[in-house]
Design a protein around this nucleic acid. Structure first.
Length: 897
DNA sequence: TGCCTGGCCTAT
DNA sequence: TGAGATAGGCCAGGCA
């Protein structure tokens, strides 16, 4: 890599001194934030950094600061003659006094939303949004008139005051409106009914108010009455996004005249202003607005001088180096390469080295870098659970109160919270939650762990896997020695540290995380930060709330809405006729099985009919479907389900994205589109899981058990149809046999000897059977396995063919070769066996191979202990058990063969 | 030795 | 207040 070259390029990207000068003149005239910003920054240095003040004189520092800074604001922004468009990355809110000018009739404290983002020129934005109020719904008791509502309001206000005695809020319940809505639960004949929209002063009051209504309140004439609340568990920032049609990572525009420049800057952002929520224009992410702003991405890594044999602890072990890499989104070379070292460090070509005498200065310099560079996204490897908490704790230990001001809000500290994330999918994980206001944290460790199944998640092995690149070879144990050496040894450490900052950036690019995550945020509507910190269900809920809002439906907050807790029956796995098949096996698959079932049978919360209602309403049989699990849903002629509608939109959008992807030539556009089609597919598949999540937001087991019951029926139907139609009696050469099938697939032996013939029959069968199902359920011919080794349910291997000329690859499912709980020896042994069986077609040879390998190992125990790290060996200390397991495996293969 | 249970990991 | 689902194979370890 030519670092000299990239340095020149990055220098050209920042404005020339002359340009700066020009802006400066204008700015002085207008007394603008740029200038104030600079002044305040310098003041800050005087306050808390003596060393920097001394160096302030030096040109090197000025140059460095110049390079770190964002591009200056253009004239039009400064003069406020242009609307402000920016890509939003983060939205949060604060509690503060209402804006007098924008909301003259309001008083007291209010929630003010803050949207952080970047303009297409690369200027940072902090937009304070006023006037959006927290609210939720309850259904309106019948016969409630305006007087009753006003009385109800008074009672509720009183109860709220009682429950929040420490609060000095002038008012809790701002107002109660009657609105026409309908619950999303169950099919209902009347178009809508009255609901009360309860608007409260602050977001936290929603929870408190819900509690009161849950427990019940005394109402004249009605007695003690408890209320089911609706949409009372929607996080305030998400509520705002939904109501304003804002999706994660989209572009927002505030027209000229609609924004007021803040009198005092609360943030370090270049453009900071106030506006009303009703004046925001949210652009859907299409065309120009599907592009990405040039975010600033900081990748960093720290090194600590741990004591020998101990993992570094912030209470004792100092931070000795911090490496930083700053890259603009969309560029392939970093803008800044920097290392901060404790004690001197020899130069590294193309790297800005800052050396300090004390650890405090190192930490302070890093804080200053964050402030000056102003990154939108902070990345690294395991930064959320190691580097960031370590830095913060370490600064605490050193008594540096000024350190943890890393966010975009002036004088505001980062917040650290212990959090646990537990799901059946990922298990229970302890983690630290660190809030850095206005900046997105993206931990590559978390992202890779979520999105990829690997045997090891160390930075080294992940880099080797995806990048074919390894870490610099420096062992932990010698870090302290390198630090205590000289400028040369510390240079070696710095190179290591830099590489650890460089690899996460490479992974981010290679795996296209920015594109994929921004697209996921856009498709599902949640903020980007939710994608790493929250589960799958918030994404479905966000889509559901958006769709429900369009249709004037409201979502109840009840945990077991409409379904008794419990478990439900899943999919059918057809009996596996274990064996070694030397004739081609055709695989027929249902495309997106569960989504298409939900669409075909209109399964939704709002189409479900309770057994009592079925009797009461006396619905004509042609208007309803009774599912194989015994539930009733109305057909779309009476009421179209919103889950099916969401799914249709997701799947048609995916088709379009895939079509556009074919047309696209620009690699960036391609990346966006590929990220989008992936996000759309994942989203469609998680809707079913959402309805079956008994500990989720809106479980509905009637839906999920109906989905699986249709699935079971379909796979049995498919098996029967294939075996009935493709027979000698039916005019075919052989009788077809379904030898296996799982959930949405059947494996068929048509009896023909060639791949080509099997493909032809596979296609014919898929078309024929598809014709017997309701749209959009479709059975597709997918691939041929030839030969095919079926060991048992969920365990098989075969050579996979998608065209008749040559096989694509060897494919193995569920076998030791794909499992991560076996030692490498077992894995390699079995892979070799499969190769011999499937490619060489030599089953006795495979068995002999296993026996030979094992007896070799028996002869050489040394090799064994080096190679085998098995559960059997480590747990029992008896390696013989492990070997019997291998022999058994070989025996089984022999039997099967 | 066979039978059962819990833990782990995978298939879909 | 935060968490997609079930089916199923195989092993370790306890017990008789």
């Amino acid at each position: 890599m030519n670092t000299g070259n990239s340095r020149k390029r990055s220098a050209a990207a920042t404005p020339s001194p002359q340009q700066q000068q020009k802006h400066h003149a204008v700015m002085e005239e207008e007394d603008l934030d740029e200038d104030v910003f600079l002044e305040e920054t310098l003041l800050q240095y005087e306050e808390d950094s003596q060393v920097l003040r001394e160096l302030e004189e030096s040109n090197a520092i000025k140059e460095r600061l110049q390079k770190w800074k964002r591009p200056s604001l253009s004239q039009a922004y400064i003069a406020q003659t242009q609307s402000i468009s920016f890509q939003q990355l983060e939205i949060d809110y604060i509690i503060a006094a209402s804006h007098k000018e924008l909301l003259p009739n309001s008083s007291g404290q209010a929630a003010i939303l803050r949207i952080f983002g970047v303009t297409k020129e690369g200027n940072s934005v902090c937009c304070h949004v006023h006037g959006f109020e927290p609210y939720f719904y309850i259904s309106c008791p019948p016969g409630m008139g305006p007087d009753d509502i006003s009385r109800f309001h008074q009672i509720l206000e009183g109860r709220m005051r009682e429950a929040n005695r420490n609060s000095n809020a002038p008012k809790f319940v701002r107002r109660i409106e009657v609105v026409q809505k309908r619950s999303i639960m169950y099919y209902q004949q009347q178009a809508s009914q009255s609901f009360l929209k309860i608007v409260v002063a602050l977001p936290t009051m929603v929870t408190s108010c819900r509690g009161i209504l849950d427990r019940g309140i005394q109402i004249d004439g009605l007695g003690m009455k408890s209320f089911l609340t609706y949409e009372s568990n929607v996080l305030f920032a998400l509520r705002f996004m939904i109501d304003c049609n804002i999706v994660g990572g989209n572009w927002i525009e505030v027209p000229v005249g609609k924004y007021k420049k803040a009198a005092r800057n609360l943030s370090y952002c270049q453009l900071e202003f106030d506006c009303l929520y009703s004046d925001l224009i949210s652009h859907s992410p299409e065309g120009e607005y599907s592009k990405m702003a040039p975010f600033r991405i900081l990748s960093f890594d720290i090194e600590c001088a741990g004591r020998k044999g101990h993992f570094p602890e912030p209470t004792q072990d100092p931070v000795i180096q911090v490496a930083n890499l700053v890259t603009l989104q969309g560029q392939d070379q970093p803008l800044i390469r920097n290392v901060m070292t404790l004690k001197s460090c020899s130069p590294i070509v193309g790297v800005d080295i800052m050396s300090f005498d004390t650890e405090k200065e190192v930490l302070r310099a890093w804080r200053d870098l964050i402030r000056e560079v102003d990154p939108d996204i902070i990345i690294g490897y395991n930064i959320c659970n190691f580097d960031l908490p370590y830095l913060i704790r370490r600064a605490e230990v050193l008594g540096m109160a000024e350190f943890p001001m890393l966010g975009r809000i002036r004088n505001s500290r980062v917040r650290v919270k212990d959090a646990t994330f537990s799901s059946r999918q990922h298990g229970t994980r302890e983690s630290k939650e660190i809030t850095i206001e206005g900046r997105v944290q993206f931990d590559l460790f978390q992202a890779v762990q979520r999105d990829y199944k690997l045997s090891s998640y160390s930075l080294n092995s992940v880099s080797a896997h995806f990048l074919n690149e390894q870490k610099e070879d420096v062992h932990h144990s010698i870090i302290s020695d390198l630090q205590n050496g000289n400028a040369e040894t510390r240079r070696r450490l710095a190179v290591y540290c830099l590489k650890d900052a460089y690899l996460p950036q490479r992974l981010l690019d290679k795996l296209m995380f920015i594109y994929n995550y921004v697209e996921m945020a856009r498709v599902t509507g949640v903020p980007i930060s939710f994608l790493l910190s929250r589960g799958q269900s918030i994404k479905v809920l966000s889509q559901l709330l958006r769709k429900a809002k369009q249709k004037d439906l409201v979502i109840p907050n009840a945990k077991q809405a409409g379904s008794e807790q419990g478990t439900f029956e899943g999919a059918t796995v057809l009996e596996a006729r274990a064996g070694f098949y030397e004739k081609p096996i055709a695989t027929l698959d249902f495309a997106s099985l569960y989504p298409s079932i939900m669409m075909a049978y209109n399964l939704c919360y709002c189409t479900l009919v309770t057994p009592e209602e079925v009797r009461k309403l006396n619905l004509p049989p042609e208007c309803v479907n009774k599912t194989p699990s015994g539930e009733t849903f109305v057909k779309s002629t009476l009421q179209k389900g919103i889950l099916p509608e969401i799914l249709e939109e997701l799947l048609t959008a995916r088709k379009r994205a895939k079509a556009d992807l074919k047309e696209a030539t620009d690699p960036r556009v391609k990346a966006v589109l590929d990220g989008r089609q992936l996000a759309l597919k994942i989203s469609a598949n998680s809707v079913y899981g959402f309805t079956g999540a008994t500990v989720g937001q809106l479980p509905c087991l009637e839906i999920s058990s109906s989905v699986t019951s249709y699935g079971r029926q379909m796979i049995e139907h498919t098996k029967k149809l294939v075996e009935d139609k493709f027979t000698v009696l039916g005019g075919y050469e052989h009788n077809a046999e379904v030898i296996y099938g799982d959930t949405d697939s059947v494996m068929v032996q048509f009896g023909v000897p060639t791949v080509e013939e099997a493909m032809k029959l596979g296609r014919e069968a898929a078309d024929y059977i598809s014709g017997t199902f309701i749209k959009p359920i479709k059975l597709e011919f997918e691939k041929i396995y030839y030969p095919y080794l079926l060991i048992s349910k969920k365990r098989y291997a075969g050579l996979l063919w998608t065209n008749p000329d040559k096989h694509d690859k060897m494919d193995a499912k569920g076998i030791e070769t794909v499992r991560r709980d076996n030692c490498l020896l077992v894995k390699n042994l079995v892979t070799e066996c499969l190769y011999k069986i499937l490619v060489d077609r030599d089953v006795p040879g495979a068995v002999q191979y296993v026996k030979n390998t094992i007896s070799d190992l028996l002869l050489n125990r040394m090799d064994l202990s080096l190679l085998v790290i098995t559960k059997g060996l480590t747990k029992t200390g008896d390696d013989y058990e492990v070997k019997t397991a291998h022999v058994e495996l070989a025996e089984r293969m022999r039997k099967v063969g």
